[in-house]
Simulated assay, not measured.
Amino acid sequence: MAESTKVAVPYPWQRSAWQQLFQQFENSQLPHALLFSGLEGVGKLQIARSLAQLLLCNQPDHNLGCGKCKGCNLFNAETHPDFRQVMPDPGKQIKIEEVRALQSQIYGSAQMSGRKVVLLGPAELLNLNAANALLKTLEEPPGATHLLLFTHQPSGVLPTINSRCQLLKLPIPAREQSIQWLTAMAGDQAADLLEAARGLPVKAFSLLDGELMAAREQVQNLLSELAAGDIGPVGTAQKLNCQPIEQVCHLVIEFVEGRVQASTGAMDGGEAGDDRQQAWLAWQRQTGGLLNFRDKVLALLAKVRSGANPNPQLALESLLIDYQRLS
């Protein structure tokens, strides 16, 4: 029987970041803690998993894990004894019990390759007790242990954790790279999907899920109808309440940020002189209102993620009343 091969490979737009990591690995200069930072949908988890597999591989091949050795097979089966992954369920935080559980593992001896690897994130979801407990590990890591953290919102990560990690920022790739990658899987839909995902290729790929596309379309249509006065906040909240509230928050934020981006683009040209000044002042008022509204949605999202259980109908009604006033 042919031997199976499965290798975690960084995305094409991550080539430069990967070369930097591999050079550090090859020169035994890889830091014990890395923090991968970038917008959700840019591919942080993929490059982090690629590095984890490389670190646990018994015989790296062409700058990657080989995909065939015992270490790679166990990694792919999620059963490697020296690998621990800590990622919360949607709407949950990372708690101190989870950090203590991984600490009890990594402070023991490695069972296979000599290295131990932790993949943890999003780091902004560490509650305060969990973050403080992890800080002790970052300050005094056990030998041959690598902690690979990732974050969608760097500002939400404690500065003390940030300062003890090497930060690796992953920007949004060039549109041409993303289109080329997406076309292989999505064909003619690639450009539309990328536009819907605001340039984030991994997020665009997730939109191939028809249910998510339908949910996004529902949010966009309802907010447009609300702004036009065709439906009220209560009715809008009732229709949106069929979706998980965390998903609604994400889609509302995406819609609002899309409006801000579109209005900013419209200001790049246009009138001159007094007319342009008036247009600029109007744009500032509109954009400021939209960003304040987005912050309210982010606050609700943080509340949900903290374990709070607000009444979805009432929470959405309150937000939508604000949006209607803004519109």
Rank of each mutant, 00 (worst) to 15 (best):
Q153F: 12
A279G: 09
K70D: 13
M213F: 07
L200I: 02
H62E: 13
E246Y: 02
P141K: 05
W280S: 13
I179E: 15
V99Q: 01
W181E: 08
F75T: 09
T264K: 11
L226Q: 11
S4N: 07
V99I: 15
A33V: 02
H32W: 02
L134M: 12
Q29M: 09
Q23H: 14
Y11H: 11
R115C: 10
H62K: 14
V256H: 03
L135Q: 15
Q218K: 12
Q177C: 11
A52P: 11
Q19V: 14
R164Q: 09
C72L: 06
F36K: 01
H250E: 13
A266K: 15
T151Q: 06
M185Q: 15
E257P: 00
L102K: 01
G121W: 05
G187Q: 05
V86M: 05
V9C: 04
P88S: 11
A52S: 15
N162I: 14
L138M: 09
Q105I: 13
L158T: 02
L56A: 12
K6Q: 14
F25A: 08
A131S: 14
L45K: 14
P60Y: 07
C66Q: 11
Q93K: 13
E271R: 13
R276A: 14
V260T: 06
G187H: 01
E78D: 14
V99H: 09
L222N: 00
K68W: 10
P244K: 08
L158A: 08
I94N: 05
E317A: 04
G41A: 02
P81G: 04
C242P: 00
V297K: 03
F205W: 11
C242E: 06
A215N: 12
V42N: 07
F293H: 09
N132E: 12
R100W: 04
E176N: 08
D82R: 06
L290K: 00
E257S: 11
R100F: 05
A101H: 11
I321S: 03
C165R: 06
A186P: 10
N241T: 06
V86I: 14
V42I: 12
I179L: 15
L316E: 01
A279W: 10
L55D: 07
D268E: 14
A144P: 02
T160R: 00
T264A: 15
V86R: 04
L319V: 03
G108M: 14
L212A: 04
Q247L: 14
A8D: 08
K6T: 13
L51F: 07
R276F: 15
A52T: 06
P312L: 04
M213E: 12
L138G: 13
T137N: 07
L55S: 10
C249H: 01
I253G: 08
S306W: 01
S155C: 07
A196Y: 02
G38S: 07
G121S: 10
V117A: 09
R325N: 13
L125C: 04
K6P: 02
L21V: 07
V9P: 09
W18R: 05
P154W: 05
A52H: 09
T5W: 06
A196H: 04
A315R: 00
L134A: 08
G270F: 10
L291K: 07
Q19P: 00
V260G: 01
